[in-house]
Structure formats: structure tokens, C-alpha cells
Design a protein around this nucleic acid. Structure first.
Lengths: 342, 342
DNA sequence: CTGAAAGCGCTTACAG
DNA sequence: CTGAAAGCGCTTACAG
């Protein structure tokens, strides 16, 4: 590691005529230092072009000033979907404000998250961790909880939610509202759902909200109208075509992500199934696709950047004040568009 | 920093009946260690649940095993555009393979990149740096070069390119080909261009390629048909409307990014300017928008993930073998779509 | 308010 | 092939 001249605390101390301890105290703004000495030392630091060695500092102080960010492994999630970059941006901004660096998980292989976390923590590389997605029975959550290591979660934990700092939208309500919107705008026959990976807690919440809304609309829930897929186009084409072929055909479908919804819409249109006349489509994430598609798609904006920002705030509280079990619910926004017009 | 038990090298040494030095050598796979001792030590490490402290290791060895990734500051660039997340993904995968962690720049404010870099380097936090975008007269490049600190650049440097490791597409050729494609499909009147920030080297290259193609097509270059904007929708609407109003109206426009192109296309269509009949549109980045827009847009895929991956490879060579001035040109792919049909 | 000393957990010439 | 010792550049009780 080049340190460009490698001016150390000793050099500064010598030049300022004080001890290294004093210089260290000046760096950490210890209030006991007299303004005069502080000023003197600061001047020498500037003159010598001194930068504290963060690594040495970490070792001595047991604090790294760094946050580990664990992204989901499957690259599709990250690439196709603006959610993760947006959330990451929110995290980065908040981290910068709070004075933390971000260490990214680079686990190329699926299911290596726990390994990465162990490496981060046991290697003393991070003071806290942000988990960017939330699975059912997540071994990472379990591990971090058992260690009482500071972390926060984007999404909702499957259990022990009163012990885990997390930030989420009210996905139950969001799905409920979306489904109700469909039934209120005249879709009362069959409302299908294309959901995501059932291991994700967000999937479960949305399914619950969907069911509840059906119930209140007196539309019976039917298993054969609930499809589980991934956050990709293929899922949209596949289930879109199945839905289009059903007899009687559903008059609405709620989809868990815009990319999927968009693919379904394209498929419907290719079959000359009209949107919203023949079938209404409502979705999540309010990506650029949903806004600007040929047929603009009704979508729920989950505000990923806000989720990221809040997760960082929670983490700071967890690290600095030992807070556990904080829960923040972030508002979502329903954007009604042509795809569900009544 | 919790280290969960905090088993150190000493504990392992004691248990194995060897010196800490030996344990250290086992960790770093020093070939001089006999297989027997190595095995014995390894067993003890496992038994004690020992994980090396990466921070301590960094301090002693002067190597951090982490790479600093400097993203551009303006959040728009990162959010609206799949380029950066995709490139980051490529970097992450390659980093993982090479055994490096990734430290992300979290500079919230514009123009803080140099500060972040200094902090990373002088704090000994990183062994190398990847610059994700390339400006003219970039003070970061200058600083890193003057320090001879290992780094690699995504994009092309403005000068000293034989001293700087970088990976780029042939943006000159890409713009040339795109423009030629327009003229070959019958657009011979006026071909406008909406380019990006003129401080970016990529902008300059693409303008050159555009000019060259015009020249070869015997279409005079006109300053008033070259517009400089940002990578956002506003730019597309703004210049799209100006272009639509020109008399005579250009019969084609080449745009530096899909988001911008898409906005322009929308604007044209709102004015009943037909695409591709009245005006052809060609663009860069091959995002989901360009593929699935109402009117699919011809676009150049720059293969951001590949750029990221290659930049990491270059950096590894720079760090481990002292390589400077390597240059990798990554292939692009031109996807011809309806927006430029002849 | 400041300094001397010990220590954070490793690595690495230097001996042997 | 292995060990003892010094050192990486800080921080932090402990004295005074």
C-alpha cells in the first residue's frame, strides 16, 4: 500500500513538539486538548500533508468506520431492476453523511452471503451490515442476531421482527390497495397475480394483501390464479401467456415487478388482448418502463432510495447506541395509469 | 468491532504448539512449511473457529486486499442509467474471483472524488482504484498518475493514454457506424446529434465519429445540429422539441443515451412526427427502454458488464505486476431496430 | 491538559 | 523449515 510519503503521527508530533498521544487526541477532537496545542498540531498536519492511517486506527480502536453492504447474489435481480442501484444510492448518501465507507459484497456465487458476512465481521472490516433483501429463514439474519452484531435489513424479517432493525414498505397494504383499485375500477371477475420468489418475505406480504382485497371484494381466491416466478421478462411472458389462455380469462392481473408486468403486457398485446379493456395490469416499482411503456402501467413506487437511506440511519443507531428492533415503515405511492383505467 | 470470541493467531499457535510466525505462514500458504505442521495448524484453526483479522494483516503487510471504486457523483447518472450498476456488477464479479473486496465511494457531493481518493489511499484502505468515468482534465487521473498508484479507468483518458490502464469501447467507430447506418438507410438531408457532457471523453469520441461519418456521406457538419446535454429525459424533450421545429427538419438524430433518445421519441410522437418515416433515431446503451419502447430504438450495446470486468483485470495486473498503460478495447454491438428502418 | 507505555493482531526480515 | 523480535501506525487507560 503506497501512502505517498508516509507521514505518520510521530512526524507530526516531532514537528509540533508534542507527544503522539496528543496528536492522536487532536485528530479525534478530544475536547481536553487546549485550543492552542490543537491549533499548533493542526498546522503541522497540514504542513506535512498528514493523513491518518485508517487501517492502523481501526486496529487500535476496534472501529473500522465501514459498513458492509450485502447485495443479493443473482445478478438478474440487480441488473434488470432499478431497485438495488437506487437503494444503494440511498445507502451511499446516508453513509457519506454519517461518515462511513461502504464495503460491497462481491460474492459471485449464489448462497455465499453468509461466508462474506463472516469474512467481513471476523476480519474486523466492518462495524455494521446492511442486508439488502430479506428471505424467509435467512441464515444471515440468524447469524447476525446470534452475534448481536449491528445490522439492518431492507424488507421485513420472517420472524423475531421485534429484535431486528428493519425498514420496509407496507407491502401488505400496497398489494391490498392495488388489488382493490382493480376491483373498484370494475374488475370483478377474476384477478390473477404474478408474484415473485416465495422465499422472499415481500412476496408473502403482497400475496396476503392481494387475498385480503379479494375477500373484501367478494372475489374468491383461487390457487390456480396465483403464479410464482422471478423478477424477469421470462416470467412475464410465461405466465402472461397462460393467463391469456385461461377460459374465462381473468380481467385483471397484479404483478410483483414492472419488468415482469411489461413483458406480460407485450405478450397480451401480441395476442390482441386489449389493455385495459380486456385485462387490466397493475404492478410494483414504478420503473421507467411502467411510466413510458406504450400502455403506461399502474405501479406502486416503493421509493427504494428512501428505503436505503433509512436502513443506513437505523444501522447508525444500532452501532452507536445499541438500538435493536427498530422498525421503519416507508411510504409508497400508487401511480394510476392507463393499464387500469375503468 | 466485535470479533466474536476474538481468537487470535496466538491462540492457534499455543494450541498447535508452534510459534505465531508459523501460523502466519500457514495462513499465507508459505510453501516452506512442512505439510505436517501445516495440517496440524489448520486443524487447530478450524477447531478454534479462527478467522484472520484482515485489518491487522493490512497494517503489517501494507496490503488491504480491497479496491476503491469511484462512481460519478451526480446521482442521476447512476439512477437513470443501467450503465453504472451493470459495470459495477462486472467489477464485483471479477473482484470476487481475484480475491478483492470493493470499497465504494460515498461522496454525496459533486466534485469530491479527489477527496475520497486521497482518503482511500492515504488511509491505506485500498490497494488500487477503479475510476468509473472519464473526464477531460480529470484531476483524479492526474493525482493517481503522479503518485504512480495502481488504477484503471473505464473510458479513455484525455491525455497520457499510453501511461494509463484503461478499458473502453471504440466510441469513435460506434458513433461512426451508427451515423453511417442512418445515411445508408436514406437519411441524407440533415443528421442531428444530441451528445452528452462535453467534459466527458466519450462525448468527444462520439462527436468525432459522427463528424467523420457525415463527411464520408457528403453531408456537411453543422454546429447548429449538435446539441450538448445531460443523460436525462429533460435533455431529450428539450432538444427533441428544438429539432422537431427546425426547418427543414433533420431526417435523423443520433443520441448519446437511450433515456434521452426515448424522451425525444416520445416528444416527436406527441407532435405527430413519425418515426422512422419523418425522423430516424439511433442511440447508445441498448437499455430495456430502447428494446421495448413502443417504437423500438436502434441502439449500441456498449456491454458495461464487460467493461467493468476488464477494468478489474487491468487493475489486478497493475497492482500485482506493476503494469501501466495497458489498453483494452471491448466490442460493442449495434442493434438495428424500427426507429431507423429505411 | 499532556506524556510514556502498552497494546491492537498480524507480517517479515533475520537467524539458526 | 521454524522461532524470536521488531514493527506496521495508531489509540487509550493510567499517571501525573
Amino acid at each position: 500500500m503506497k501512502t505517498s510519503g508516509a507521514v505518520t503521527i510521530k512526524d507530526v508530533a516531532k514537528m509540533a513538539g508534542v507527544s503522539p498521544s496528543t496528536v492522536s487526541r487532536v485528530i479525534s477532537r478530544n475536547p481536553k486538548i487546549t485550543p492552542e496545542t490543537s491549533e499548533k498540531v493542526l498546522k503541522c498536519m497540514k504542513e506535512l500533508g498528514y493523513y491518518p492511517n485508517a487501517i492502523a486506527r481501526s486496529l487500535a480502536s476496534k472501529k473500522s468506520g465501514t459498513i458492509g453492504v450485502i447485495m443479493p447474489t443473482t445478478s438478474e435481480d440487480v441488473l434488470l431492476n432499478p431497485f438495488f442501484p437506487e437503494a444503494l444510492r440511498g445507502i451511499a448518501k446516508a453513509a457519506s453523511k454519517a461518515g462511513y465507507d461502504l464495503l460491497l459484497s462481491t460474492n459471485a456465487e449464489k448462497g455465499e452471503e453468509l461466508k462474506v458476512i463472516k469474512n467481513f465481521i471476523r476480519g474486523s472490516k466492518v462495524d455494521g451490515i446492511i442486508l439488502m433483501s430479506s428471505k424467509v429463514n435467512d441464515e444471515c439474519i440468524e447469524f447476525l442476531t446470534s452475534l448481536d452484531f449491528p445490522f439492518s435489513l431492507i424488507g421485513s424479517p420472517h420472524c423475531f421482527s421485534d429484535k431486528i432493525n428493519h425498514v420496509d414498505n407496507d407491502n401488505y397494504m400496497a398489494a391490498y390497495e392495488l388489488t382493490r383499485h382493480l376491483s373498484m375500477t370494475g374488475r370483478r371477475k377474476k384477478i390473477a397475480m404474478i408474484a415473485g420468489d416465495e422465499k422472499l418475505t415481500v412476496t408473502q406480504k403482497r400475496i396476503e394483501g392481494y387475498k385480503k382485497a379479494l375477500e373484501e371484494s367478494n372475489i374468491p381466491f383461487k390457487h390456480e390464479l396465483l403464479f410464482m416466478g422471478s423478477f424477469d421478462e421470462k416470467t412475464g411472458y410465461k405466465y402472461g401467456s397462460i393467463i391469456a389462455d385461461l377460459d374465462p380469462r381473468p380481467d385483471a392481473v397484479i404483478v410483483t415487478d414492472d419488468v415482469v408486468a411489461f413483458a406480460a403486457v407485450r405478450l397480451f398485446e401480441s395476442l390482441d388482448v386489449k389493455i385495459p379493456e380486456d385485462i387490466a395490469v397493475a404492478s410494483f416499482n414504478n420503473s421507467i418502463l411502467s411510466r413510458y411503456s406504450n400502455t403506461p402501467i399502474t405501479s406502486v413506487d416503493v421509493n427504494a432510495a428512501k428505503l436505503g437511506k433509512e436502513s443506513m440511519k437505523l444501522l447508525v443507531e444500532a452501532m452507536e447506541s445499541g438500538v435493536r428492533g427498530s422498525k421503519v415503515i416507508t411510504p409508497y405511492t400508487l401511480h394510476k395509469r392507463k393499464s387500469t383505467e375503468g
